[in-house]
């Protein structure tokens, strides 16, 4: 039967379309499990998972931890702010020390692109990338595409626009790979200073005008303006960003159609997304969060079988 083609989940780029289908099929069953009175299954009861977070995270870490616990895995958590990394230990040493405590799967977030790929080559345990710098965030893309599929039935032929800071966004890159593999058309929209120079070379069109982008699309995935990654002045002010690229009710009302609004969180309310849109029926933001647990359960379950 169905088994995914990879031993680690490092990026969507490495996955086949069939892998995405298997993950989605498995996630459907796990979503059913987490809506039961008893939300736990014993599948991973002999597995130990370490969540190793070198960068801050709320949603992703909680979501992974909950997914692991609902699969009955043993879970240990590590965050760099309260650890020996501060004392100068290398990444490999830190992880090897964790592994000598008999850990089977490492879920890692790191600020350097490629850190999980490096780790996967050096250690025996399986690695799940929970975000590596500005590179990939595969489980976010999986839960985003899973949510689109759940909402619209299919992804093939759908038009998706990703709005915001594409250059600094691992969510954008992973989403682009996933959506393209599933047959969707992808455009990006945002200030030119926040769009990677070579974006069109991976088959993604750029639209500078938010209104035109929204008229074109079926789904708009609004990214967070990552204040922590804006050392250079890529746009003059948040107010100006909001004026030109913020999605609000007036803008949506001016379209002659209904589109689905997504956001990976956390939202800067009033900057990239207004409250009256974020909390409206168009938004599937909280569904994304719910699906995140089911999708991560599916990923861990499928990897643990390898």
């Amino acid at each position: 039967m169905a088994s995914i083609s990879v031993n680690h989940l490092l990026g969507i780029k490495d996955l086949q379309k069939s892998d995405l289908d298997i993950i989605f099929d498995t996630a459907v069953e796990f979503k059913q499990v987490i809506n039961r009175p008893i939300k736990k299954v014993p599948s991973l009861r002999d597995i130990t998972i370490a969540n190793v977070f070198f960068e801050n995270s709320t949603r992703t870490r909680l979501s992974f931890e909950l997914a692991e616990k609902r699969l009955s895995a043993d879970v240990i958590n590590f965050s760099s702010s309260s650890s020996s990394v501060k004392k100068g230990e290398t990444l490999l040493d830190t992880v090897k020390n964790i592994l000598s405590m008999k850990v089977d799967i490492i879920v890692m977030r790191h600020s350097s692109p490629g850190a999980p790929h490096f780790l996967a080559k050096k250690i025996d345990a399986q690695v799940v990338n929970a975000g590596d710098g500005t590179h990939e965030h595969p489980t976010q893309a999986l839960l985003d595409t899973f949510s689109i599929k759940e909402k619209l039935g299919d992804i093939e032929g759908k038009k998706v626009v990703i709005v915001g800071d594409i250059s600094h966004s691992r969510v954008a890159l992973s989403n682009i790979f996933a959506l393209q593999k599933l047959g969707a058309e992808v455009k990006v929209c945002g200030p030119p200073t926040l769009i990677p120079k070579y974006i069109e070379e991976i088959g993604v069109k750029y639209e500078a005008d938010i209104k035109k982008a929204l008229v074109w699309c079926d789904i708009a995935n609004i990214l967070r303006i990552q204040l922590e990654r804006q050392q250079a002045a890529n746009f003059p002010s948040l107010r100006e960003y909001s004026l030109y690229y913020g999605v609000n009710k007036r803008l949506l009302d001016s379209l002659d159609k209904e589109i689905v609004i997504m956001h990976p969180g956390p939202i800067n309310r009033g900057v990239e997304l207004d409250s009256d849109v974020a909390d409206s029926d168009h938004s599937i933001i909280l569904e994304q969060v719910e699906n995140g647990v089911a999708v991560r359960m599916a990923v861990l379950y499928l990897l643990a079988q390898k």
Partner: peptide
């Protein structure tokens, strides 16, 4: 019963779930 089996990781063929 897929998620409740006791032969997870002990069999050659992976198990795929059906609907409950």
């Amino acid at each position: 019963t897929t998620f409740y089996r006791d032969d997870f990781r002990r069999r050659d063929e992976p198990l795929s779930p059906n609907a409950t």
